[in-house]
Simulated scan of single mutants.
Amino acid sequence: MLTTRHGVRPLGAPDLDAFLRLTAQDPVVNVFADYRARTTNLEPRWLGGEMWGRFEDGELVAACHVGANLVPVQASADDARTFAERALTRGRTVSTIVGPHEAVRVLWNGVAGSWGRPRETRWGQPHLELSEAPLAAADPAVRRTTRQDLDELYPACVAMYTEEVGISPEYGGGADLYRARVTQLMNRGWSFARFDAGRLVFKAEVACASPYAAQIQGVWVPPDRRGEGLAIAGMAAVAELVRREIAPVVSLYVNEWNTPARRAYATVGFRETARFSTVMF
């Protein structure tokens, strides 16, 4: 039964097929939501939150992931306004709003008066895709990480996160949870790195994946090794491995102001297909 006059209700396991048809309308942009649906069966206890769906004439036309992140899925401006109205009825429980720019902009405008000042907003994040062989030569030394690498890998992940987000993932007692996440990605074969004489000099992870795409996160080179081409060759290697063994398309989104990273991704062959935005609390 629909729970609001707008035709919005939480989705569950019986809605999985309809939800996957929705994400398949843009399967690369929607890879996070697709991944979450497939791994949780849309069960709230596994989602750690809810997946809202908006219906018109009984058909699912848009959705919104509501967990640690608020992520609109195939949401028009009208859909986003409707999801914002629903979000206002429960208060802010998310740490970020992230997704396609226009939907995020409308969502944020709808809740801004009640949710308070965000810690940071990033409005023009290019969403990039690579669906063919990389244009740059791959670094043959890049490999999947193992537990033996954890002493080098974990501090690098903390440094990358802190540099990117502006706050340490260990802040407020989060070290155990973050270490578990790093280890989880490693165990899945989703963590890649290059080591020189035992020191990590490049890393990247797959954040989420579906049969259609894999989204890369956490690309990082130590500050004293930047400018050597490690990110270009490293990302070419990661893209080859991911496309061969995980999903046919590799995607990521990058901050608009990060010119060196954007230049590196373009050299590898990534092309912009959309614009994302992120609001962080």
Results as ranks from 00 to 15, higher is better:
His6Asp: 14
Pro10Glu: 09
Asp15Cys: 09
Asp17Gln: 15
Phe19Thr: 02
Leu20Thr: 05
Leu22Gln: 01
Ala24His: 08
Gln25Asp: 09
Val29Glu: 11
Asn30Ile: 01
Val31Gln: 13
Val31Met: 10
Phe32Lys: 00
Ala33Arg: 03
Tyr35Phe: 15
Thr40Ile: 11
Asn41Arg: 15
Arg45Ile: 10
Met51Cys: 12
Gly53Val: 06
Phe55Lys: 12
Glu56Leu: 04
Glu59Leu: 13
Val66Tyr: 15
Ala87Val: 02
Thr89Trp: 09
Arg90Ala: 06
Ala103Met: 01
Val104Gly: 07
Val104Cys: 10
Val106Asn: 00
Leu107Thr: 04
Trp108Gly: 07
Asn109Pro: 06
Asn109Asp: 15
Val111Phe: 04
Trp115His: 04
Pro118Ile: 02
Pro118Asn: 07
Arg119Val: 08
Glu120Cys: 13
Thr121Ala: 14
Gly124Trp: 13
Glu129Lys: 14
Ala133Thr: 05
Ala137Glu: 06
Asp139Leu: 03
Pro140Tyr: 00
Thr146Trp: 11
Thr146Tyr: 11
Arg147Asp: 13
Asp149Gly: 02
Asp151Leu: 14
Tyr154Trp: 07
Tyr154Pro: 07
Pro155Arg: 01
Ala156Cys: 01
Tyr161Thr: 08
Gly166Met: 08
Ile167Leu: 11
Ser168Glu: 02
Pro169Cys: 07
Tyr171Ile: 10
Gly172His: 05
Tyr178Cys: 04
Tyr178Lys: 07
Leu185Lys: 13
Gly189Val: 02
Trp190Asp: 08
Arg194Pro: 11
Gly198Ser: 12
Gly198Phe: 03
Glu205Asp: 15
Glu205Gly: 06
Cys208Met: 12
Ser210Gln: 02
Ala213Ser: 14
Ala213Tyr: 01
Gly218Trp: 03
Gly218Pro: 00
Gly218Met: 11
Pro222Leu: 04
Arg225Asp: 12
Gly227Asn: 04
Ala233Leu: 00
Met235Gly: 05
Arg244Ser: 08
Glu245Tyr: 12
Val254Cys: 10
Trp257Gly: 06
Ala261Ile: 06
Arg262Ser: 09
Arg263Cys: 01
Arg263Phe: 01
Ala264Ile: 03
Ala266His: 14
Thr267Trp: 05
Val268Tyr: 05
Gly269Pro: 05
Arg271Met: 07
Phe281Glu: 04
